[in-house]
């Protein structure tokens, strides 16, 4: 062993140690770097606006005014006594219920049908997703035309059948039904595909066992399919709750005079987000502070309703 090689080895040692350390660091730090983009984006576009909105909701910030004062919980106190806000909450919940319940039920049935051996089922499975890829604005405008009072197709059909014309936009419940139709049309296929994917994960053995036990298709659906879909149903209910309570584009475009965002002549279909929009940008009020308070109230409302829905849906008998 010569002197030279010893010196060489001593020199190589720190280098290798460095590499080792880097590798260890890589293993520890890199995963965080890889997930960082999401959290960075969420921080910038999700968390920061959320907190900032919270701060603005405690002020009397007005878009056109140069001064802003801290007002504490004044906006929230005013909101609790604002009958138009509660009207919007009632409308939103009403539209949510009559759009989501039939929607998820239809999606289940649709998924069940798509899960059987149909001819050309790939075509059918793809086509239920079509409403999803159409422009929301186009959908809202076309449905608004369909439900139009004088020259709408639906009233034309009702007139031919002898039922007579319905002023869909003017009535409380009729406008809710019209809006729910748009929501159902758009989201049923989406939920059906989620259910379908979950159904395909159910092992065939369960159905075979059920069949041997003498269970008919309907009983199999009820006692094998549904319990196995439980986590998926919970997921779709929560997602629909979050989406449904933020309904805006459909009612906004449904309004014939869509400038004020009042949601009909008597605010019969003004949703919470529309009211938020009215207070911030839809009218000359520009009350950003108040609108922010509405935003936070909606956030809490969604959290509460989601929790309630979760507790209800959890009662579905589990497969485990």
């Amino acid at each position: 062993m010569s002197e030279g090689t010893v010196v060489e080895r001593v020199g190589a040692l720190p280098q290798r140690r460095m590499r080792m350390r880097l590798r260890r660091l890589d293993g520890k730090v890199s995963p965080y770097l890889y997930i960082a983009p999401f959290f960075l984006l969420f921080g910038v576009f999700g968390l920061f606006p959320l907190l900032y909105t919270g701060w603005v909701s405690l002020t009397d910030r007005n878009l056109l005014s140069t001064t802003t004062n801290f007002v504490g919980l004044d906006n929230y106190t005013a909101l609790i006594h604002d009958s138009y806000f509660w009207n919007a909450v009632e409308n939103t919940l009403g539209i949510f219920v009559i759009s989501t319940v039939p929607q998820l039920f239809l999606a289940l049935v649709l998924a069940h049908v798509l899960n059987t051996k149909l001819h050309g089922r790939t075509l059918f499975r793809m086509s239920v997703l079509l409403p999803q890829i159409t422009s929301l604005v186009a959908v809202a405008l076309i449905f608004t035309q369909l439900f139009s009072r004088d020259y709408g197709f639906i009233n034309y059909v009702l007139g031919e059948v002898g039922i007579g014309k319905v002023d869909w936009e003017a009535g409380d419940y009729t406008s809710w039904i019209a809006l729910s139709t748009m929501v159902i049309w758009r989201w049923t296929g989406y939920n059906a595909l989620i259910y379908l994917a979950a159904m395909q994960a159910i092992p065939d053995e369960l159905y075979e066992a059920a069949a041997i036990d003498g269970a008919r298709p309907w009983r199999q659906f009820w006692h094998v399919t549904i319990p196995n879909l439980r986590p998926t149903i919970i997921f779709t209910v929560i997602i629909s709750t979050i989406g449904g309570l933020q309904l805006f584009t459909e009612p906004f475009l449904f309004e014939p005079l869509h400038s004020g965002a009042t949601g009909g002549s008597a605010r019969q279909y003004q949703t919470v987000v529309m009211y938020l929009y009215e207070k911030s940008f839809g009218s000359s009020q520009f009350k950003l502070g108040y609108a922010s308070a509405i935003g936070w109230a909606l956030f809490m409302l969604i959290a509460v309703i989601s929790l309630v829905n979760f507790l209800i849906v959890r009662r579905i008998r589990s497969a485990d």
Partner: peptide, 20 residues
Amino acid sequence: HQGDIQTAATNATIRVEQGK
């Protein structure tokens, strides 16, 4: 708030027209 008052007036006349 001229414009908003006019919007409110328009909604009021529509409510009468719609029989609400």
